[in-house]
């Protein structure tokens, strides 16, 4: 009993993890090499799925959309949450209240807030167009608009940008806004903890030397907070690669997004696996590409952790 006992304590968690994490992960490799129906394998097809992927325009479109999402969401979230946190850190009045308010989007369900945002972006009676109208801007198509935001912007200036430079569609941009809104508060709290860990003496010394607050932010805060920045950067990237609920809720069935411009990679996996196609095998292959991307990001994070510390 004595020698076995630790293993008995670990048994329940280990069994669950082996059965419902480890085996599925291994299985996903297997499935991607087989033709696979709901009931089981129906013939080995080797790398066929991966070849198919190379020539699947919808796959590349979803990759591009995901790329747009990451490129727009990650830097915006990192900068905004640092600014939030820096402001919170200097605030003396109602600080607790602000902290609470910023965090509320984090605990509310993506499904519910997506319904709210979908209504905000409603073309006829949404809040977004209502507010635009108040400041004299013509209503926009938002979730129904497949035109790229740069394209739309330059069009107003009389320049016709080529499609390749159009940027994410306005519909995807709406999803970008929601994603930033949802994730900023959480990261601000992480930043705030990092900021409070910077010894006050640095700022006191800078004050004596007559450095301005802005200069102090760039010369003291920014370098000393860089480990947190790195953490927030990588974690937000990993999370953003997995965006699903807001895309499904705001531009999902039955109507769908405009010309597939909001279809991100996890949505495409879902659609291939559980939509009409029911192609579990192909969906698994795409999921593995996502796995590879996230694995690389995770390894970078683990490696760099050692270097970015002072």
């Amino acid at each position: 009993m004595g020698k076995l006992s630790p293993y008995l304590y670990l048994l329940p968690a280990t069994v669950i993890l082996l059965l419902f994490r480890f085996i599925p992960i291994v299985l996903s490799f297997v499935i991607s090499f087989f033709e696979w129906t709901i009931t089981g394998p129906a013939g080995f097809i080797g790398l066929e799925n991966y070849q198919l992927m190379m020539h699947d325009p919808e796959y590349w479109q979803s990759m591009l959309n995901t790329f747009y999402l990451v490129i727009f969401v990650v830097p915006t979230t990192v900068i905004l949450s640092l600014v939030f946190a820096a402001l919170l850190n200097t605030a003396s009045f109602l600080r607790g209240l602000f902290r609470t308010v910023y965090f509320i989007p984090t605990v509310t369900s993506m499904v519910a807030v997506s319904i709210v945002w979908r209504t905000i972006f409603n073309q006829q009676s949404g809040l977004a167009n209502f507010l635009l109208e108040k400041i004299g801007i013509a209503p926009l198509g938002w979730l129904a608009e497949s035109d790229g935001i740069f394209h739309l912007l330059f069009q107003n200036l009389g320049i016709n940008l080529p499609a390749a430079l159009g940027g994410p569609s306005l519909a995807l941009f709406a999803i970008i806004i929601v994603t930033v809104w949802k994730s900023t508060g959480y990261n601000a709290i992480i930043y705030l903890a990092g900021l409070q860990n910077i010894p006050r003496v640095y700022y006191e010394a800078a004050d004596i030397d007559g450095a301005s607050k802005v200069k102090q932010f760039f010369k003291i805060t920014l370098p000393l907070i860089s480990p947190t920045t790195f953490y927030v950067l990588i974690m937000t990237t990993i999370v953003t690669f997995q965006v699903f609920a807001q895309v499904y809720m705001m531009t999902g069935p039955p109507i769908g997004g405009p010309l597939g411009t909001t279809k991100v990679i996890v949505y495409y996996i879902f659609e291939q696996g559980f939509g009409e196609a029911q192609n579990l095998s192909y969906a698994s292959a795409i999921a593995l590409v996502l796995f590879l991307i996230i694995l690389i990001l995770t390894i970078i994070q683990k490696r760099m952790e050692k270097f970015v510390h002072y």
Binding site: K3, P6, Y7, L10, A13, T14, L17, L19, F20, R21, F22, I23, P24, I25, L27, S28, I31, W36, I38, G40, I238, Q242, F244, V266, I269, F270, G273, F274, L280, A283, S284, A287, L288, L290, F291, I294, L295, T298
Partner: peptide
């Protein structure tokens, strides 16, 4: 006990794998 660190590393690495990866095989299972 033997394998403490190894098992813990296994646990942690399972935590790193995001849900969309094991969703489809879990459905099959």
């Amino acid at each position: 006990f033997k394998g403490n660190n190894l098992l813990f590393t296994f646990f942690i690495s399972m935590m790193m794998v995001p849900q969309p990866i094991y969703l489809i095989p879990s459905y099959v299972l």
